[in-house]
Amino acid sequence: MSHLLDSLSTELRRGTLTLAVLSQLQTQQYGYSLVQSLEKSGIVIEQSTLYPLLRRLEKQELVKSMWDTTESRPRKYYLLTDYGTEVYEQLKEEWIKNSKELYKLLEGDQRDGFN
């Protein structure tokens, strides 16, 4: 039961990860700082999922990256491109619309439960 619940909720979360990552890249971030800022907002993401996802977003030209070698350790920073910002805004609207609809559905379900 709990195993099934786990896999179902992982499935629910999976689709939202891209949106969550895009939202954090409006300011530039490096890999580990992104993990930390996501975790602070309560979003758990496997690091083995995140880093490949960043590269995929870069390949899709939603995100650009640059190496910063000025500090003691070189770090790779990621930032939304203009195209990425555009896509992010649309995706955000889509998500808000979807969750409102789903919320209505779930609220209705609860009302029926009380009757």
Partner: peptide, 12 residues
């Protein structure tokens, strides 16, 4: 990817 991983791991 190797460089990226190295810097990430060191950040952790």
């Amino acid at each position: 990817i190797g460089l990226e991983l190295k810097s990430t791991i060191e950040d952790m």
